[in-house]
Amino acid sequence: MTTRAIVALGSNLGDSPATLAAALQAIHRLPGTRVVRASSLYTSPPMAGMQQPNYCNAVAAIDTELAPLALLDALQVIELAHGRERHERWGARTLDLDIIGYGHQCLDSERLTLPHYGVAERAFVLLPLFEIDPGYRFADGRQLTTLLAACPPQTLYRKPDFLLFSGGDSPA
């Protein structure tokens, strides 16, 4: 059975736009998975006032046959392939892939919380998601537009001319 999932992508080390584009291609090649739509590229300052480079962010809607934890495992393999190291919370990273939503499923486990626990405070996730699915409703019933309206103000810049994903198996 195929499920629509929402994946947030972020990077602030190295060539972040190229890394996000490569990550989308890698997600598209996962077994039983395809990227349906990807947002524009957005830039934002790091969370919690951390002293590090600005982030590049995007959101993708994917259709997948992978179960939530299998998808999480696959996304972590992609992160590792792009040099991801986990040293500190909200630390700088080459690639961060988060499952924001997975169909109509709510989950609260040690490894994965669905919908993503911090989504309501993250304009860098909500705004790109609004771009690709303005009517999105999270599995817990929260409406994207309501969360976006209540989200704390954040500096966010959209780069509309940067194509992250063109579909198919060729690089964007």
Rank of each mutant, 00 (worst) to 15 (best):
Arg86Lys: 08
Arg29Thr: 13
Cys151Trp: 01
Ala150Thr: 08
Cys151Gln: 06
Ala23Val: 15
Gln52Leu: 11
Thr19Gln: 13
Gly83Glu: 11
Leu147Val: 14
Leu156Ala: 05
Pro152Gly: 10
His82Val: 12
Arg111His: 14
Leu20Val: 05
Ile78Gln: 07
Gly14Ser: 15
Ala58Tyr: 08
Ala149Cys: 02
Ser16Arg: 10
Thr19Gly: 02
Leu41Thr: 04
Pro160Gln: 06
His87Asn: 14
Ser109Ala: 12
Gly83Tyr: 07
Ala60Thr: 01
Val119Gly: 00
Thr19Ser: 08
Arg34Asn: 08
Glu121Ile: 07
Val59Ser: 14
Arg158Gly: 03
Ser170Thr: 09
Val36Ala: 13
Ser44Trp: 07
Cys151Glu: 05
Ala23Pro: 10
Leu80Glu: 14
Met1Ala: 08
Lys159Trp: 06
Ala8Tyr: 11
Leu80Phe: 05
Gly49Met: 10
Tyr136Ala: 11
Ala172Trp: 10
Tyr102Ser: 03
Asn12His: 05
Asp73Gln: 14
Val125Gln: 04
Leu127Glu: 11
Ser44His: 04
Ala5Cys: 06
Pro31Ala: 05
Gln52Tyr: 09
Val35Glu: 04
Ala61Asn: 01
Gly103Met: 06
Gly91Pro: 07
Thr64Arg: 08
Asp108Trp: 01
Pro68Thr: 12
Gly101Asp: 14
Gln51Asp: 13
Pro31His: 05
Asp15Thr: 04
Arg142Tyr: 00
Glu65Gly: 11
Gly91Gln: 10
Ala26Pro: 08
Ala172Gln: 09
Thr2Trp: 01
Cys56His: 15
Ala70Glu: 05
Thr19Cys: 01
Tyr102Val: 09
Gly167Lys: 02
Arg137Met: 09
Tyr157Gly: 01
Ser44Tyr: 09
Ala21Arg: 10
Tyr102Ile: 04
Ala150Gly: 00
Tyr117Ser: 05
Leu72His: 14
Met47Pro: 11
Gly168Gln: 02
Gly10Phe: 12
Ser166Phe: 00
Arg34Cys: 13
Ala92Tyr: 03
Ala67Val: 00
Pro46Met: 03
Ala26Asn: 15
Ser11Met: 09
Ile78Leu: 15
Leu148Phe: 02
Gln105Asp: 06
Pro17Trp: 09
Asp15Cys: 14
Tyr55Thr: 06
Thr19Met: 05
Lys159Ala: 12
Arg84Lys: 15
Ala38Trp: 13
Leu69Asp: 14
Leu112Thr: 08
His104Val: 06
Asp140Ser: 03
Thr155Met: 06
Arg29Phe: 08
Ala123Ser: 09
Cys106Asp: 06
Arg29Lys: 11
Asp73Trp: 00
Phe138Ile: 07
Met1Gly: 08
Ile62Thr: 01
